[in-house]
Amino acid sequence: MSSMSPAKHLSVVAMLFLSLSMAVATFQSSVGRTMSKEDIILKTEKLTHFHFFFHVIISGPNIDDVNAALPPPTSTTPAANAFFGRVDSLDTPLTIGPNISSDRIGSMQGVVVGASPVEELAYFMEVIFVFTEGKYNGSTLVMVGRNQATMKLRELPIVGGTGIFRFARGYALTRTYSPFDNKTGTAIYEYDLYALHY
């Protein structure tokens, strides 16, 4: 049985290292590459403003806000805010006016989580505004942030979008138009969205 000489051994190791380096370089070039704005034909940045209402309905035949999880029962003193830890899933209509029968422009889909154990009633929201009308049909805007419902006017960030709103960023202002009504199981919120996009 013959043994490999040190020189031959180094040569084999060098060839293996070279092959591995080439494979990594090939993988990197096929997975990601640096691009310029011209590569994807970005146009002049513009600002779009939307004004609409969304309707939360938790009872009746047209429920659009479903409780997905409640806080676990505990033997300790409960949080001052009973909504802390509650998770709701939404698919609420967006309308031009405050009436549910107003022209619909899309829907707001996402998750709302009770995020504060005190009375300030703050929620973490991760939602997508899905537009279904006119030139915005099929485009979306994503909003993620903290909504302190006890404030008259709240601001949340717009962090992205799709379709017309690719590379979008901006903010949303929201206010309670009609507080939750226990008899009808509904509430209405007013939104102003400001989105920078190409």
Rank of each mutant, 00 (worst) to 15 (best):
V66A: 08
M22I: 06
T184V: 03
K46L: 09
G163F: 09
Y194Q: 11
N147P: 09
K43Q: 15
T77V: 14
T76R: 13
L90R: 00
I105R: 01
Y171C: 09
A69W: 00
I105L: 15
P78G: 06
L156E: 15
M4A: 09
V24M: 12
T26G: 13
P93M: 12
T176G: 07
L47T: 07
I100Q: 05
D192P: 07
A7H: 09
S2K: 11
G145M: 05
F54C: 00
Q28W: 02
Y171P: 09
H197P: 07
G170T: 12
L20F: 12
L18Q: 05
N137D: 11
V31H: 09
R86C: 01
A122T: 15
R154S: 04
R169P: 05
P117C: 05
A80Y: 01
G85D: 04
L18D: 03
R33W: 02
S11W: 01
S30E: 09
N81H: 06
N182G: 10
A82M: 13
F27R: 06
D65S: 13
R154P: 03
L193T: 06
P179M: 08
V112E: 02
I188P: 12
S178F: 04
S102C: 08
M22E: 05
I188G: 04
A187I: 06
E155W: 07
V56L: 02
Y123S: 06
R33M: 08
V12Y: 07
E133N: 07
M35K: 06
L156P: 15
K152Q: 12
Y189F: 15
L18T: 08
I58W: 08
M22V: 07
I158T: 04
S75H: 13
D181I: 07
M108S: 11
G145W: 02
L173V: 15
M35H: 02
I164T: 15
H49N: 10
G185H: 10
K135P: 10
H55C: 01
D65W: 03
S36R: 14
R166C: 03
L121R: 06
A115P: 03
N137I: 07
